[in-house]
Simulated scan of single mutants.
Amino acid sequence: MFALDENAVSQAVVRWLEDQGYQARAIRAGQHGIDVAAWHPETRHRWAIEAKGAASSKKGSRRIDRPLSDGAAYGAVSKALLNTIFWTGITTMRDTSIGLACPSDRYFDMWLDRIEPACAVLGISIFRVGTDGEVKCSPKHPVDRPAPLLTPQWPMPRSLQRNFELPPYED
């Protein structure tokens, strides 16, 4: 059975964003930073998206093209949710739409369905990527986060700055 790795999920979201008129790019799985960053040249709107895959992206892994188990999908969705919640408190990202992207399969969809109401409250969009590369975003339009959230405001960590220069943020 074919399963999408993190790189395939990221690239599908990049294509979807480019179709919407954004300039977008993705970093390779395993690198620190925002997995998919996008900027719309006309509206100046930004996206920051955390991606997770259903298979290993590591060359030589026995898990390449093998889908994750229920527990592993839970772990991937949990990490993506935690990262995106953290991003909502980064001062320089206050006007950036935040999303998480995962494969659309039995296990990922089960966990994404469970967190979707909380994501809606937090202003975090969910991108579901089918094995055919089709992307469904919920909600489709950029969302506004409640302002201000009851979280401390953080400076942009250096590890996130690696892929977010469309155009550069100013601290």
Results as ranks from 00 to 15, higher is better:
N7A: 07
V9A: 07
V9Q: 05
Q11K: 10
A12T: 09
V13I: 01
V13R: 00
V13H: 00
V13P: 00
V14N: 05
W16E: 13
L17F: 08
E18P: 04
D19P: 03
D19R: 06
Q20N: 06
G21T: 13
Q23R: 08
A24R: 01
A26R: 11
A26Q: 06
A26V: 11
I27S: 10
I27V: 12
R28D: 13
R28S: 06
A29G: 08
A29P: 03
G30P: 04
H32L: 04
H32V: 05
G33V: 06
G33P: 05
G33A: 00
V36L: 00
V36K: 04
A37K: 00
A37W: 12
A37H: 08
A37D: 06
A37I: 01
A38C: 04
A38L: 04
W39Q: 02
H40Q: 07
P41Y: 11
T43L: 02
R44D: 08
R44G: 11
H45E: 09
R46E: 02
W47A: 08
A48Y: 03
A48D: 09
A48W: 04
A48N: 06
I49E: 11
I49R: 06
I49V: 14
I49Y: 06
E50A: 10
A51I: 04
A51C: 12
A51W: 00
G53P: 09
G53D: 03
A54F: 02
A55E: 14
A55M: 14
S56G: 07
S57P: 11
S57M: 02
K58C: 03
K59R: 05
K59M: 05
G60K: 05
S61L: 04
R63G: 07
I64F: 07
D65M: 12
D65A: 13
D65N: 15
R66Q: 12
P67F: 00
L68T: 12
S69P: 10
S69L: 07
D70W: 13
D70M: 02
D70Q: 03
G71E: 00
G71A: 00
A72L: 10
A73W: 15
Y74Q: 14
G75T: 14
G75N: 15
A76M: 15
V77I: 15
K79Y: 06
A80S: 15
A80K: 13
L81F: 15
L81V: 15
L82W: 08
L82C: 13
L82G: 12
N83E: 15
N83D: 15
T84F: 02
F86K: 04
W87K: 00
T88L: 01
G89A: 01
G89V: 07
I90L: 01
I90C: 02
T91P: 05
T92E: 14
R94D: 09
R94N: 07
I98V: 15
G99C: 01
A101P: 07
A101R: 00
